[in-house]
Each structure stands twice: as structure tokens, then as C-alpha cells.
Design a protein around this nucleic acid. Structure first.
Lengths: 220, 220
DNA sequence: TTTATTTTTTAGAAACAACTAAAAATAGAT
DNA sequence: ATCTATTTTTAGTTGTTTCTAAAAAATAAA
């Protein structure tokens, strides 16, 4: 129906507009897609032509209802494949993105619903990101950065804001992953770094402010 | 590394040359790929350029060692995905081809070996076709068309020569699938049709010569 | 062996997706 | 308000992959 390239743009536009930047600018899209502004302009024209987005020159782009529908389905596919790769094939959370990026473009009316059932209808992916359901509805969860938690507070890791390999592998080395129980022991005023205890492992460690802001938790 | 289109041509050339038609002609490839002769000529030049095939004008094309390696890996991926789709997601043997056709192009150094292990290292796909191993070796099995079996002989279905939806669904309706035990009761001289008994189901039926020649069996 | 038929290749064009360089429009600063 | 700097678009190319129509080569037939 649509090319992989078109689908990738739709997904990027959805991502940026859900982050709050609406309408999405050519420059922001070029950065997100790691390409040049002229390439973006070309594609926006094609997407508008196909009624997947409304595009106003020198202003920006917004997805149409159909555009949102397609982009949401892509996010659903991407995240379900990520669950498959980690849960069934044993890949780590920092290894699955590129594969899912390819798998999400496989077209078939029933495939993804079968996969969803096979995986037990997961609501969140290996990074804690929500998986839209078949109707495009997003599961909600009240999460916040670990950096917001008061000293003395306790929380469970439910997601990451930074999906980079470097950060994810750093967390692995620290023993931090989804579901890990954290108690905040102390906040250093000087650089806002946090001393925390990993409750199950009984281990204490210090997290930089940058790291603490990139970790999402649910309060206990 | 290579485009999906290039990969599809490599696979088609391997298929035709394994069938015995070597070198593979432009026309045969055009028919196999459902495209035109000029498109094939263009692609053969590109494949030769990239050292994946040796191409001689007005003569035909043959895969190089590297071409065979890539094409064999593609067949491996295609068939392993077909096993996944039937065994894990519950698709029927006539539904999986198009999905596997897309999934086989997903590039990742470890993915397919993980999938292979997850599936228990299957040696044959849902149609009974052999799955090359990671080194490109093909499992062998002494199979023959059901039409060759003597009256009074017994055999087990291990494959099909015709992968069309129409034939596969026809077999489903008859209760014939891989592993089904068949006893040949009678051969009608007039049109070479076969009267057979499905041993487990205790049911008798008549197969046309065309159908019997498209069913591969292993003698008991 | 010459002619006719079929097959294959070349030539030219279109759609897609990307780029660089240059022009135009917007936004910001004095 | 004008000038400057940034952002965005336009114009022109390149590389893929496909196609149709025409030319060339190989094969088959008389």
C-alpha cells in the first residue's frame, strides 16, 4: 500500500507531534530522520498528495486521521516485534530496534494480530513504551522521571526516555532494568546526582542527574 | 547489503538452476519473476557487476559462489519464517508464502540463527521443502511422486510439487497433509487416476493423475 | 542457405528517494 | 523598519527499478 520510506516519515511525524511539537517542522523531521531538508520537503508533498498529511509551506505538517491510523499501526507493529525478539528469541533490549524497524514494514492483514495473541497481548514493549491496541488506543500509565522522586521515596522502573545503546548497556551493567525496585537514599545538591538502593539486589549506587532524568518510574 | 529486488532475482536464479535449467535464460527468469525481459536484462547486468552472477549476453546467467551463498541463505530464511508462521502463529500452509517473502529480506547477523533455535532446528518447511543449514547444506530425503507408487504400496506424504493456494486448499479439503499415511488401492488405466486410502482416517478417495504427480511421498 | 520466428538487448521514459547548490521566505536583531 | 541569519523550498542530478517500443541476435523452418 505505502512504501517503507513513506511509513518511516509517518512514524516520525507521529512521534514528534505526540511529543508536543505540532505542527512538525521540516527541520525537526530532517533531524529525526537523519536526512536533509530537501528530502523532507519532497516527501511531505507526496504524503499530502496521498491525503496522509496536511502540509503548509513554510509552516509545517500534521497527520490526517488516516495518517495517524497508519503511523499508530506501525508503532504497534514495531513494539510487538520488539517483544517477540526479547521474549521469544532472547535478544537484549538494546539489540532489537533495528530488526523491529525492518519487521514493522511487513504487510499482512492478520499477521500482527496473530503475533499479538502469541505474545499474550503485551501492553508495553521491552523499553516500557506503550503498545497501541488494534483500534489505535494507547495504554496509559502514570510514570515520571526518577529524578522527580523525593528522598526516602520508593519506585519501580517502568521505562526509559533515552533508547540509545550506550544508555541501555550502562543500565544493564548497573543491574537496572524494567521492574527493578529502587529506593532513593539521597540527592546531592551540588550536581543533582542521586544515591539509590536497588532493593532486590541490596546494592547501593549513584546515578547522575542525566541518567535519573532518563529513567521512568512508577511510585510505590 | 543488497536490495530486496536483487535478492529476489538471486533466489529465482537459484531455484531455476537447481531445477536443472542451467544457464538460466532471460525469458525463464522473466516468467518466474512475473516481469518483462528488459527488466531482467537490466538486473542481470547489475548482478554481474556486483560479482553475484556471471552473465553472458544471449546465453544466460549463472550464480557465482557468493551468489549461491546469498540465495541459499534467503531460501533458509524464507522457509524458517514459514515454519514460524505455521507452528507458532497458527497460519495454514497456503497462507504463509507472501509473508515469508517479506520476512526473508530482514537483515540481521543473528536473527535467523536465533529463530532456527527457537523453532528447534527444523529440516523441512510446512510444504516439506528442505531448509538449508547455516552452512548452506541441503538436507536430503528420498521422495517420489505418489503417482509412482505401485498398487498395494503404502507411503507417507512428505511434500508437494505444486505450491498453489488452489492445490493446497484442495488437499486440506481431502484431509491430506504432511505426515498423512496413504495406501494405494487401485490405478485406473483410462486416466491414470489413483484410488487411495487415508489410513489414519479410514477414508477412501480418488486422486487425479495431476494431483498424484504433485504429491511427494516417502515409501513405507 | 536464406527466410521467418522467437528471444534478447538497447533505447528512452517514468516513478521513487535521495542528494547538493541556489533561491526564496520567515524570524530575529539592531 | 531594515538588515541579517536561519530555515525552507526550488531546481537540477544521481541511482534504482520498472516499463514500452524498437533494434539486434539467435534459433527454427523452408
Amino acid at each position: 500500500m505505502y512504501t517503507s520510506s513513506e511509513e518511516n516519515y509517518l512514524k516520525a511525524i507521529l512521534k514528534l507531534s505526540r511529543k508536543g511539537d505540532s505542527p512538525v517542522t521540516t527541520g525537526a523531521l530532517a533531524a529525526e530522520m537523519q536526512t536533509t531538508a530537501p528530502s523532507v520537503t519532497d516527501m511531505l508533498r507526496r504524503l499530502a498528495e496521498k491525503q496522509l498529511a496536511t502540509y503548509e509551506k513554510y509552516y509545517g505538517v500534521q497527520l490526517t486521521e488516516e495518517g495517524v491510523r497508519i503511523a499508530t499501526a506501525l508503532v504497534r507493529r514495531h513494539r510487538l516485534w520488539e517483544v517477540f525478539l526479547t521474549e521469544k528469541l532472547g535478544f537484549l533490549w538494546d539489540e532489537v530496534h533495528d530488526m523491529a524497524e525492518q519487521l514493522e514494514h511487513v504487510q499482512h492483514p492478520e499477521l500482527i494480530e496473530r503475533l499479538d495473541a502469541f505474545l499474550g497481548h503485551p501492553r508495553f514493549d521491552p523499553h516500557g513504551d506503550p503498545i497501541p491496541d488494534a483500534q489505535g488506543r494507547w495504554p496509559e500509565r502514570q510514570r515520571q522521571p526518577l529524578s522527580n522522586v523525593e528522598v526516602g521515596g520508593q519506585a519501580v522502573v517502568v521505562g526509559v526516555d533515552d533508547h540509545s545503546t550506550a544508555f541501555l548497556q550502562y543500565l544493564d551493567r548497573l543491574g537496572i532494568g524494567l521492574g527493578v525496585h529502587i529506593a532513593v537514599l539521597e540527592r546531592v545538591e551540588y550536581d543533582h546526582s542521586l544515591c539509590v538502593r536497588l532493593v532486590e539486589q541490596g546494592r547501593d549506587l549513584t546515578l547522575s542527574d542525566k541518567a535519573a532524568r532518563s529513567l521512568f518510574v512508577e511510585l510505590l
